[in-house]
């Protein structure tokens, strides 16, 4: 178990957004947080690296209580890819190098440069190294953001809708790369997702949120027509196509 969340509650202007969230994640696992817009998926993700401070509850990261760590300590353990990243006039290499921020003192070392270089190679982005990110496509920028989180050398990777701006090719490429890296380095990834089929394809475990609470939590078995109708209010069928589970809304 690399991450455990106990009784997490989050208030926004005294309104309860998340209520007694409980779940655990093992190393080498990919978890999809699912649920309708505005249910608190992103909020939950931000509570996991203390971008937001939960009102109550404990987030335990590899045996350490997150509330006892400072932001920089957390950033050495948790990488975060937000939905939106800003671009400026700097090269992809420098943009990714920024991910070493939690590890560097006054200046970067050769070690930092080597790590960045390796991640560029790993994500097949070598050709982009000296491209300026303000001239890049949405897919390339997303890759830069993911690379930036990877050079943090995190134990847990948090991704907020990692494929929302991407075309089909980039979606497949990025998600399968994340799966490979999570398995290979036995880290964990938590992603918020809208596309249930994508979640079924790439995630190992699923957390359905409804009204700020965990509706259900488990492996593929919990992704049932009943659960989906309950959470999204949409009637669906779950069918198997060539061994792949597919969620099909009933018109």
């Amino acid at each position: 178990m690399i991450l455990s969340v106990e009784e997490l509650t989050f208030l926004y202007r005294n309104r309860e957004v998340l209520d007694e969230i409980v779940f655990t994640i093992d190393a080498g696992e990919i978890v999809a947080i699912l649920g309708p817009n505005g249910v608190g998926k992103t909020t939950l993700l931000k509570c996991l690296n203390r971008i937001l401070r939960p009102k109550t509850g404990v987030v335990n990261l590899d045996g350490e209580d997150l509330s006892r760590l400072n932001l920089m300590d957390i950033a050495r353990r948790v990488g975060y890819v937000p939905q939106r990243v800003e671009t400026g006039r700097l090269t992809a290499f420098d943009a990714v190098l920024l991910g070493r921020r939690p590890h560097i003192g006054w200046d970067v070392t050769e070690h930092d440069l080597r790590i960045v270089d390796a991640v560029f190679h790993r994500l097949s982005m070598d050709a982009l190294r000296l491209s300026y990110i303000d001239e890049m496509s949405g897919g390339e920028i997303q890759k830069v953001a993911i690379a930036r989180a990877l050079v943090q050398e995190p134990k847990v990777l948090l991704l907020d809708e990692p494929t929302s701006n991407l075309d089909l090719k980039n979606q497949v490429e990025i998600l399968s790369t994340i799966v490979q890296i999570v398995r290979q380095h036995t880290i964990a990834a938590v992603m918020t997702m809208h596309d249930l089929n994508q979640a079924l394809r790439y995630a190992d475990r699923f957390i359905f949120l409804k009204d700020g609470r965990v509706h259900s939590h488990g492996d593929r078995g919990i992704v049932t027509p009943d659960a989906i109708r309950d959470v999204y209010g949409v009637p669906v069928e779950v069918v198997t196509h060539k061994g792949v589970l597919l969620v099909v809304p009933i018109a």
Partner: peptide, 21 residues
């Protein structure tokens, strides 16, 4: 001394927070 922090903020407040700033 704050150049890395400013670079982080330039990448967006949320990215910066995720980087421990």
């Amino acid at each position: 001394a704050n150049r890395w922090n400013y670079n982080s903020i330039d990448a967006g407040d949320e990215t910066a927070k995720g980087l421990g700033v």
